[in-house]
């Protein structure tokens, strides 16, 4: 465990050296404990793969005292019982103009397009954290067979809702943005909606599954989303 100062208002706590479910679970457990115990002086927290950035108010708590408290809490992370994870189902239409790289990715992975979709939609994904753009989940969970290097040339603009893979990761682009992952399909669900009462759909720790849908259902859900009459299944 390392404490790294990030200016006068934040400290980064690294709980491991690698991207793993185990390390990330400790990161989220530490965040949960901080919130649960309402640690004085903590303003907000940002979990990532293996570290937690803690913003604090130095007029309430000093750097050394805060690090000491965080060290104590981090010892409890392995035994911390966290609230049960939510399961979120995202409908996804694979291939065609909504999944421009499906064919190329299948070729690269030496799978048929149908096998690739079956493997991708058959897996459960853990949301490690949200970042890069509002509401974008960093996830893993795909079978090893789907590990693929990132695109040689990132796209300048990837449409919001694109479901994509790169390395061992899977992500859903939350707004139109540049991106270097292979686009397999698209969900009509909005992961970020600035007009909504709750603009962000996914939270760190959520479990995500993709339900394969055809173009007709995609268009139907998309129009219901636009009219504010669609809620994804969350258990």
């Amino acid at each position: 465990m390392r404490f790294l100062p990030a200016g006068d208002l934040a400290v980064s706590i690294e709980l491991g050296e690698e991207i793993s479910v185990q390390v990330n679970t400790r990161v989220r457990a530490l965040e949960y404990l901080i919130e649960h115990k309402a640690l004085p002086g903590v303003v907000e927290t940002v979990p990532t793969y293996r570290s937690l950035l803690v913003y604090y108010d130095p007029s309430v708590v000093g750097y050394e005292a805060l690090c000491a408290q965080l060290a104590t809490l981090s010892e409890q992370t392995t035994t911390t019982a966290m609230p049960p994870a939510r399961e979120v189902e995202l409908p996804c239409c694979y291939g065609g103009e909504l999944g421009l790289d499906l064919e190329a990715a299948a070729r690269r992975l030496e799978l048929s397009m149908d096998e690739l979709v079956r493997l991708h939609a058959g897996a459960e994904y853990l949301v490690y954290f949200i970042g890069f753009t509002p509401g974008l989940p960093y996830m893993t969970g795909a079978p090893e067979r789907l590990t693929i290097p990132r695109l040689d040339t990132p796209r300048v603009k990837v449409p919001a809702g694109s479901v994509a893979i790169g390395g061992i990761q899977c992500c859903v682009y939350s707004v139109d943005s540049p991106g270097g992952f292979w686009l397999l399909g698209r969900t009509p669900v909005r992961l970020y909606d600035p007009e909504a009462a709750e603009p962000i759909l996914l939270k760190p720790g959520d479990r995500v599954r993709f339900r394969r849908i055809e173009r007709g259902e995609f268009d139907d859900i998309a129009s219901r989303v636009a009219a504010g009459r669609f809620s994804p299944v969350i258990r």
Binding site: G7, L9, A10, S12, E18, P47, S51, L53, Y138
Partner: peptide, 10 residues
């Protein structure tokens, strides 16, 4: 690096 949080002024 492995992506992490970005503080004000980083």
């Amino acid at each position: 690096i492995i992506s992490d949080g970005i503080a004000l002024g980083a």
